[in-house]
Amino acid sequence: MSTIKPDLHAILDLDRIVHEPARLAILTVLAAAEAVEFLFLQRITGLSKGNLSSHTQKLEAAGFLETLKAFRGRIPVTSFQITEDGRAALHAYHKQLRALLPKEGKP
């Protein structure tokens, strides 16, 4: 019977919602601002509209972000804001990731 190494345990413990690269990028951008418009998220992540919508919906369902709807004149504008849970999840993910990565000078 094979046993899982502690390092592999740590990798498997990573939050899958946050770990996906597109969602990680979205959360990182949202954590650096109070509110971010859909257009900017699209530009900075390089995702298509549909892809971005799908990822933000998953993050919203996980309680990691809030969607803010407003109007600029007659044009609807969608913005996003990271929640406290989202910030905590991102912080925890960063901590885990840094612990997993090899220290400088070590293989």
């Binding site: 990680l24 990028a25 990182t28 951008v29 650096a32 601002a33 971010v36 900017f40 900075i44 990731l97």
Partner: peptide, 18 residues
């Protein structure tokens, strides 16, 4: 995506927001 890339993404957002 490395922690360095993530830091750069955050910095870019902060600079733009400024």
């Amino acid at each position: 995506m490395t922690p360095h890339d993530l830091d750069a993404l955050g910095a870019l957002t902060r600079d733009y927001a400024a």
